[in-house]
Amino acid sequence: MTQYINDYDYDNLINSQIALHALQNSKQTSQSNFEKSVRISFYSRLFARYLEVSEIDGQLIYQAALIHNIDYVPFPDLKKALYISRLYTERWDGHGKPFGLLGSQTPIHAQIIAISNYWEAIIFDNDDYPLLVHDALTRIYEERFDGHFNPKLVCDFIRFIIATSK
């Protein structure tokens, strides 16, 4: 039986393709930055599913994660994703950028991207690459006490990594 794509799925597919195209064509995006953004969007989307985030919000998280590390995307379809992608540098303790949002003032979408971005960085961007999962989990767990991330979300992320590593 043929499964038809509904309007919502089609729009999200188009927006994801636009985000990937924008990322590929960004002047500041190297091949390694492109691959990093794809990995972060993948981790973010899987973590959102693990948290049982709605499909709509999960797709938004995926799109925002794709473009989280570029300064400008000239596509109006991605306004919401672009806004969220700018908030991944906020901190749970309110000392982040660009607005210094405190705690849950930062949308969950951006919090998920922030943790996925950190995870990708400690796994791939370190002198001891590849870092053992246990060591990486220890480092991300310690960060929850530093005020960088939502402590509950860090615990959820650790459970997610353990569950998906089996």
Rank of each mutant, 00 (worst) to 15 (best):
I161E: 03
L132V: 05
L60A: 08
T164F: 15
F47W: 13
L66A: 02
T106I: 15
S26H: 15
E143G: 00
N150G: 02
L101G: 02
I115Y: 03
Q3I: 05
S54R: 05
A163E: 13
F99D: 06
D128P: 02
D146F: 09
D9E: 13
D146W: 10
R159T: 08
N6A: 06
I123V: 01
R39H: 11
H134N: 11
L13Y: 12
I112N: 06
R91A: 06
S116C: 06
E55H: 13
G147E: 01
Y4A: 13
Y83A: 04
Y43Q: 05
A121R: 14
G58T: 09
I61R: 06
I84V: 09
P98M: 03
D146T: 03
I123Q: 11
F99S: 04
H134G: 06
Q17C: 07
Q24G: 03
L153W: 12
L20E: 13
F47L: 07
E52Y: 05
Q59E: 14
S165V: 02
V154G: 01
I5T: 09
V53Y: 14
Q28A: 10
Q59A: 11
E55N: 12
I61H: 05
R39I: 03
K36Q: 03
Q63R: 15
N117A: 09
I40L: 12
V154H: 04
I158S: 02
D71I: 04
K97N: 02
T138L: 07
I5K: 15
W92Q: 05
Y50A: 00
H95I: 10
Q3D: 03
V133F: 01
D125K: 12
T164L: 14
L66F: 05
F160N: 04
L20H: 09
I112G: 01
S30D: 11
D57I: 00
S85M: 06
I140M: 11
Y88G: 02
R45V: 00
A114L: 10
V133R: 07
Y43W: 15
I70D: 08
Y50K: 03
N126V: 01
K166T: 04
R39F: 07
Y118V: 02
G147V: 02
A136C: 12
V38L: 15
S165T: 07
I56A: 06
V154W: 05
R139V: 00
L131Y: 04
I115K: 01
S116H: 10
